[in-house]
Design a protein around this nucleic acid. Structure first.
Lengths: 212, 212
DNA sequence: GTCTGGCAGGGGAAAAACCCTGTGGGCCAA
DNA sequence: TTGGCCCACAGGGTTTTTCCCCTGCCAGAC
């Protein structure tokens, strides 16, 4: 009997196209496709809808790949999740794996590699490309002790610093003295290792505190 | 005889999956797939490789969808380009259409809509979804006269302004006087309607001059 | 010739960046 | 209870950078 696969991706065309691809493999067939995590969880209420493998996009609206994977790991541990993403961001990869994904595929993998991944996941329980393995190894040596945590008020400030407002205007908006704002700024420069406001803006965007 | 289609997308899996989808339509077959615009142009040197339709991703490395479409429009006008993208940005859509694309599909279209689009492009020569039509109509009322064009040297400056360098350091790097750099900055502030460097950084990122 | 555009400078006001000090409230432990 | 400590907040004062206005040179285009 063929192994069942569910594709979760918010882009209709992609989920269908990937589904088509999966169906072309002898050992697998697509049970159904979903547009987001919520839709998948709804479907899984019916035991007949529980697949062997979920091919999950990371970036989705409503319920994203990470949250959904976490939920699956808690409630349907028998389901193997393979993450599928264009993201090469270390943090995202690690988050997915921590959430319980059995593998992480870049969207530019070849058809044969997808086939391989599906086979290996069913057989060994996991599949990791070289890229992902490297990220994992790096994350060990990488001094991950300096996980900077920002306070709510600091984040609020950063967002305002990403506009054309002067610090004086930001101070007014936050009902604080300009001097206090300087304090926030200096603290952030210190702990994020930045030289000036431009650095702060780039940091904010990189870390999705502010989205242009 | 079936109409020939070429898929251009930097993500291997996606191009193959979409190819699979196209092959499932009776009236079409995939000639080959490419990873970027350059690869396509290379292929087209051989007349046997000229397809009826190109399904082109907009975001690609090396030679992007817009430039490639422009080139095709100049040199292979008989080839119909259908843009395929997750981007819903008005500007991008307009750019693609101005470059000569015959249609613009969001990547979340359904299989049947892709089929429709392919059929219509072969028959009528174009295919536009409601979204795209709306953008076109909007672009008429929208004052699109202020299409700001930036010079090469200005773009070079903007990129450096998106770092933590001071203007003096930027001047050194560009082998110019700090005063000249001020000139660039002031000209940009003026024509982009900005107040300060932070505004410039946000502008650069929004318009993909600089990617964090 | 004139005109435009890239380049460069002087001078000055404003903002940003970097010092160091101080207050008052909450919290914890002697 | 009290003294010590941390922390958000705020002020004084100074240097550096940014921002703005106005002028001038020179080469290449018209």
């Amino acid at each position: 009997m063929k192994h069942s696969v569910v594709v979760v991706d918010d882009h209709n065309l992609l989920s269908q196209a990937i589904g088509e691809l999966v169906n072309s493999f002898d050992e697998f067939h697509v049970l159904y496709t979903c547009k987001n995590g919520q839709e998948l969880l709804d479907k899984l209420q019916n035991p007949a809808n529980i697949p062997n493998i979920v091919l999950m996009d990371v970036n989705m609206p409503i319920l994203n790949g990470i949250e959904t994977t976490e939920h699956l790991y808690q409630n349907f541990p028998q389901v193997k999740v393979l993450a599928l993403s264009i993201e090469e961001d270390e943090k995202v990869i690690l988050k997915m794996l921590r959430s319980g994904a059995k593998g992480y595929l870049m969207k530019d993998v070849k058809k044969t590699e997808l086939h391989n991944a599906l086979l290996e996941v069913m057989e060994k329980g996991f599949y990791h490309t070289n890229t992902v393995t490297k990220v994992l190894v790096d994350s060990l040596s990488h001094n991950d002790g300096d996980v900077v945590t920002l306070k709510d008020r600091e984040i609020e400030f950063i967002k305002l610093a990403c506009t054309e407002m002067t610090y004086r205007e930001i101070a007014d908006k936050m009902f604080l003295s300009p001097k206090t704002i300087e304090g926030y700024r200096n603290a952030l420069f210190e702990k994020l290792n930045l030289r000036n406001r431009t650095g702060l803006v780039i940091y904010a965007i990189k870390n999705k505190i502010f989205t242009p």
